[in-house]
């Protein structure tokens, strides 16, 4: 595994999320917070959701049963920041012909450099989570709204792909502060994504999966020797069997919710350990 040499801290950071589906009320605050934090463009007419850009998107799941047994769950979906079977083998990073998307072995974050992207959209085809979006038009902000854009996030232009960055600019700013205070480590509370902070139900927990003092590590209990599989029986990842080794973990006590994370056969257990070994 590649390890970066920053201050020779071992192991490197691995930012990730634990989203409690049982707590999520589907209110959509995370989506709104994400839009405004990341200068995500929107159009006057957003009825065609295939053309909408939603870095964070809340999906509705149902157990498919009739009343009175119907149950509904909401599943917020940011970019999953896949590490793949060996660190950095994310589906999108491996197909990008322009090196516009990259995997950082230091933070585990998949980056997208908009000025480098030429819009071939291979990455969108490769992404199993529909987490990537194409800008079909230049963004048009309502009059005066340019003044409210965040200077810390570079706005996109027509013809490029964009996606959730785990609010990486907040990490950059937290690093600045840490440097000013003697080059210490960035603390858990200093780097939080906008969606995690906006969630009124506290369903989203964000932090370093490799740091035992971070809440996300305690919830997920990832097994570094087995593709960061969670040791929490409530946890599952989306399409885990593809071997994408994602950093967004979902939690639910309801089995039908856990099963909806992948296309399991009737006799299969959700999140079978080691099932990814056949890949890559």
């Amino acid at each position: 595994m590649k390890q970066t040499q920053i201050h020779n801290e071992q192991p490197p950071r691995r930012y990730g999320m634990a989203i409690d589906v049982d707590k999520c009320t589907g209110c959509g605050s995370c989506m709104v917070a994400c839009f405004s934090e990341n200068n995500v463009p929107f159009k006057q007419d957003e009825t065609d959701k295939l053309l909408s850009i939603t870095w964070m998107r809340v999906y509705q799941l149902t157990n498919g049963k009739t009343f009175p047994h119907t149950e509904v769950a909401y599943l917020p979906r940011p970019c999953q920041h896949c590490a793949g079977q060996h660190e950095g083998h994310s589906p999108c990073v491996s197909v990008c012909p322009a090196t516009a998307t990259d995997y950082s072995a230091d933070t585990g974050i998949v980056s997208q450099i908009y000025t480098r992207c030429f819009g071939c959209r291979y990455c969108m085809g490769a992404c199993p989570y529909h987490a990537r979006y194409f800008n079909w038009w230049d963004p048009v902000w309502p009059d005066g709204m340019e003044k409210y854009l965040s200077p810390n996030v570079s706005p996109r232009m027509r013809g490029v792909v964009e996606k959730c960055s785990f609010c990486f600019h907040r990490y950059q700013m937290a690093r600045d502060k840490a440097y000013t205070e003697g080059g210490r480590k960035v603390q858990e509370a200093e780097y939080q994504t906008a969606c995690a902070q906006a969630c009124p139900a506290g369903a989203i927990v964000f932090g370093d999966l490799n740091d035992p003092s971070h809440a996300v590590n305690q919830i997920v209990k990832p097994d570094a020797h087995n593709h960061y599989k969670s040791g929490n029986p409530r946890a599952f990842r989306l399409l885990e069997r593809l071997g994408t080794n994602t950093k967004v973990y979902y939690l639910s006590s309801r089995e039908w919710v856990r099963r909806s994370g992948d296309n399991y056969r009737a006799d299969e257990q959700p999140g079978m350990p080691g099932a990814a070994a056949q890949h890559g």
Binding site: Q5, Y103, S104, D106
Partner: peptide, 21 residues
């Protein structure tokens, strides 16, 4: 400087997200 320079999986240098936002 022997710091911050091999975190990118693509280039073996700094990850793009060191200097870009």
């Amino acid at each position: 400087y022997q710091v911050v320079h091999d975190s990118s999986v693509q280039t073996g240098r700094d990850a793009c997200f060191v200097c870009h936002k």
